[in-house]
Simulated assay, not measured.
Amino acid sequence: MEPTPDQPSAEFRLVCAACRWPRAAGDVAVREAASVPGIDWDRVARIIRRHRVWGLAADAFRSAGIALPLTLDKRLSERAGQIARQNLSAAAETRRLGGILDAAGIDWITFKGLPLAIQGYGTLAVKSANDIDILVAADDAAPAAALLREAGYQRFSPGPEISDDQVAAWMQVSKESGWRHPANGLIVELHSRLLQNPGLLPEAALSAPRKRIAIARGIEVPTMGDELMFPYLFAHGAHHGWFRLKWLADLNAMLVADPAGPEARYREAKALGVGRCAAQGLLLAHEMLGLDLPPALVKELRADRAHRRLVNVAKACLGGKFEDVEHASPTARTMLPVLAAGLLLRRGLGYKLSELGALAANPVDRASGRLPKGLAFLYPVLGGVRWSRRMLGRGK
């Protein structure tokens, strides 16, 4: 039977069990899920790959004593080793790049990735961190990009349609640019803001309270403080429809390790206007990863129709026909429901207008100065046309 968002496959439930944290609690769930007759281990591997949870799965199956097919067991061991080595390499590179930014007088923090791995899991061995996320002030985006070039990085996002001298204009409209080092393969995402639509969480800024985290021996980096970390994680996952299980697993691990507890983090997020984002993330983690929530809080969260709608949208992105298939195109990613749900993430007309503006921001044309200066007000219209064509599969 084809899995549905509300009736996931046994294989998807097994991978969800492997993503539970702490590990002691996850062991019981993994053994129970793995005991279901007829588990398709090839499908398990595809789900793990699709959701980028190789390290968590390897750790979970080893801890629970699950006998795996040799091919999958070898693959898990190889990927777990790669994750640990890559994360250590990324930690050293973060220190190098941080030193370069400090020497240039550029304020910065790093977030998600390695700081999240240490805070949530206490190790760099289980969380896959594909890139180094660095946030700088908007005015420092251009000089920071130039420093990345000098450090050996090559820009891949935006692509060649944007010249080097147009990157600053690009980052006034788009929240990030992507850079890859040809020698070590490491990727840096240089951010000038944390969310594409700053109206979702205006407090998410470089000026927010921060702390320092030791991500490896002798390597301490600045990152966002808890006052921003949890609202940001809720908002980031919600804005992307939580389409990757890895993000939910990281949120779950952070909440389990947090002394304040999930309910306190929900109240804080609600006070900042992203209570719906928090409700969605908490309910998903509760249902899929066994996050312990007070029954009264679960009842409160489920009583809101908008919360239920957001949970259903995320389940459709995480599971169903997309359990083991990577989202290959805007339409395949169920983007229309996600984008529509994006308008529900925060109350108020102002937020909804800023969300529509972010969707039609059109950074390519703005950065390249396609329209004459007097017609700049038409960029959102042009961007909306381009977006509509992409949704219909008729162009870029």
Score class of each variant (00 low, 15 high):
336 L>D: 06
274 V>C: 04
34 A>L: 04
375 L>C: 11
314 A>T: 08
334 T>Q: 15
88 L>Q: 00
338 V>F: 01
106 I>Q: 13
295 P>C: 13
322 F>C: 02
210 R>V: 13
301 L>T: 05
369 G>P: 00
150 E>F: 02
390 R>Q: 13
305 R>N: 00
50 R>E: 04
377 F>M: 11
312 N>D: 15
3 P>A: 10
39 I>C: 01
194 L>D: 10
31 R>W: 08
176 E>K: 05
365 D>H: 11
287 E>I: 12
175 K>A: 02
339 L>M: 09
19 C>K: 06
290 G>I: 03
118 I>W: 08
2 E>G: 13
325 V>C: 00
279 A>M: 11
306 A>D: 04
75 R>Q: 10
273 G>L: 02
63 S>K: 12
358 A>C: 02
63 S>T: 13
275 G>D: 03
324 D>Q: 07
174 S>K: 01
188 V>M: 10
245 L>Q: 08
277 C>H: 07
343 L>T: 04
300 E>Q: 15
359 L>H: 07
45 A>E: 12
82 Q>N: 09
191 H>S: 10
60 A>H: 04
310 L>Q: 05
137 A>K: 15
351 Y>C: 02
7 Q>G: 01
164 D>S: 13
25 A>V: 14
50 R>A: 08
219 I>S: 07
86 Q>G: 04
365 D>V: 08
8 P>H: 07
320 G>M: 05
287 E>W: 08
259 P>D: 11
305 R>T: 09
273 G>R: 04
246 K>N: 15
111 F>P: 02
130 N>Q: 12
51 H>C: 11
106 I>L: 15
322 F>K: 14
152 G>M: 08
151 A>N: 02
332 A>C: 03
77 S>C: 00
260 A>L: 15
267 R>T: 08
251 L>A: 14
246 K>F: 14
206 L>K: 10
280 Q>G: 11
209 P>F: 12
108 W>F: 08
144 A>S: 14
222 P>Q: 08
42 D>I: 13
197 N>S: 09
150 E>C: 06
117 A>P: 01
156 F>M: 09
97 L>Q: 01
334 T>V: 06
176 E>A: 10
106 I>S: 12
277 C>Q: 12
28 V>N: 09
377 F>Q: 08
181 H>E: 08
190 L>N: 03
282 L>N: 03
95 R>N: 10
384 G>F: 05
51 H>F: 11
338 V>C: 09
170 W>C: 00
248 L>G: 11
47 I>F: 06
8 P>M: 10
160 P>L: 12
146 A>H: 14
356 L>S: 06
35 S>H: 02
65 G>K: 09
315 K>D: 13
309 R>M: 00
128 S>V: 13
249 A>G: 10
304 D>N: 13
88 L>H: 00
358 A>E: 01
104 A>E: 12
217 R>L: 00
215 I>K: 01
352 K>L: 11
314 A>S: 14
29 A>P: 02
65 G>I: 06
298 V>A: 11
383 G>H: 02
195 L>K: 04
63 S>R: 15
247 W>L: 07
393 G>I: 01
366 R>N: 00
70 L>P: 12
8 P>Y: 06
174 S>G: 07
392 L>F: 09
338 V>I: 12
201 L>M: 07
129 A>T: 08
21 W>H: 10
